[in-house]
Design a protein around this nucleic acid. Structure first.
Lengths: 208, 208
DNA sequence: TAGATTGTTAATCGATTAACAATC
DNA sequence: TAGATTGTTAATCGATTAACAATC
């Protein structure tokens, strides 16, 4: 068992979940930490250490039961509790995420799309109408989303996050460069800085 | 000076570069590690430690010259050497990245788009025609791209990376779930696992 | 000169790996 | 029972923070 799971472990959790899903669809029922280490590129020691953070789901001399372990991780990740999420900014990136992402399998339920651009408002993406951003307050009071996806520029992001936090939206999947956490230490943020990632690739190519 | 810059520092480099750019556009010319720490949310100690990895660009009693430091980091990141990059898979995500990303400012030059879907081939995205994937060999031999963006499903990714590696493309910005690095330890890969990121947000919301 | 702030070393903290006893 | 493999402790490694002498 465990109290706090360290950040390093949390970062690896979705990967464990993905691989266990694959093993499952290959029809396997059990796996040892050594076998899993070869597939995932972690050490067997780290896998045992990690998996033990949330209870002894292995069995000595046998390994881990794939289904049970996967279910357990799903539970820890909260994938069994769909949370309402809205998306702000239906530009190229916002629309791509709306179309591309399987929200249901990641613990969410996409319930609203918003944009300020009149030319986009009313269009339908993945069966959802794009709503005018000036209806955001009303929508949130009625539908109580728990999280928001920010696909808007930095300048717009500050204003919108302030507004959303007042409306009770306290969790953000943030594609903007606005640093939500630094101004609001209490909210939950997961940042995706695509530009930083591409920049790191440039670094790696530049430095043997 | 420094030989090897640790992975932890590399991860932070693009962020330093971004913040220095902002300070610059605010018209500032110098900044101390303490001031920078307040803006960036790192400790001043860490900033000094990090920046010192690549030479003493500060000055005691003064701080850091923003322009000089920014230029130096740009050089380390290879942003001054545009590298040819191609994009494979022009679905929602691939098109969004094509439209949305500023490649030039990140050390790249987007020179080709590819898809296998006949209905997409020939369409123009950001002034580039979508090419048939079966012209990939020919294109690479002529234009020698150095990197590729993979916006294709896992199954397709394995085949395409093998093909690209043979053609001399050894660096990947990988949006697929195919684990390139595990099968090709020599290539440079920067993974973007959007689903894992959203899953971590679910975890954070689920665990106080 | 006095004040400020770096560069750098030392101390602390946390994460990973190794080892092995427990046990299925 | 013998073999396999976990759970867990101890050892190592690396990263962050603190401290302060060097110096602008």
């Amino acid at each position: 068992m465990a109290g706090t799971i360290s950040n390093s472990v949390i970062k690896r959790l979705p990967r464990y979940y993905r691989f266990l899903g694959e093993l499952r669809s290959e029809g396997l029922t059990k796996i040892s930490s050594r076998e899993l280490s070869q597939r995932m590129g972690f050490t067997a020691s780290q896998i045992r250490q990690d998996l033990n953070c949330f209870g002894g789901f292995g069995q000595q001399g046998y390994g881990y039961n794939i289904d049970i372990l996967r279910e357990e991780i799903a539970y820890i990740l909260g994938l069994d509790k769909p949370k309402g999420i809205i998306l702000i900014g239906t530009g190229n990136l916002g629309r791509a995420i709306t179309m591309h992402m399987n929200f249901e399998s990641k613990g969410f339920h996409l319930i609203g799309l918003f944009d300020e651009k009149e030319s986009l408002v009313g269009k339908v993406v993945k069966n959802q109408p794009i709503r005018n951003i000036n209806t955001l307050d009303e929508f949130c009071r009625e539908n109580l989303p728990k999280a928001a996806i920010l696909c808007i520029p930095k300048e717009a992001a500050q204003k919108i996050t302030d507004q959303l936090i007042k409306l009770g939206v306290k969790s953000f999947w943030n594609f903007s460069h606005y640093d939500i956490a630094i101004n609001n230490p209490d909210v939950k943020v997961e940042n995706v800085h695509l530009g930083d990632s591409l920049t790191r690739l440039s670094y790696k190519m530049n430095n043997e």
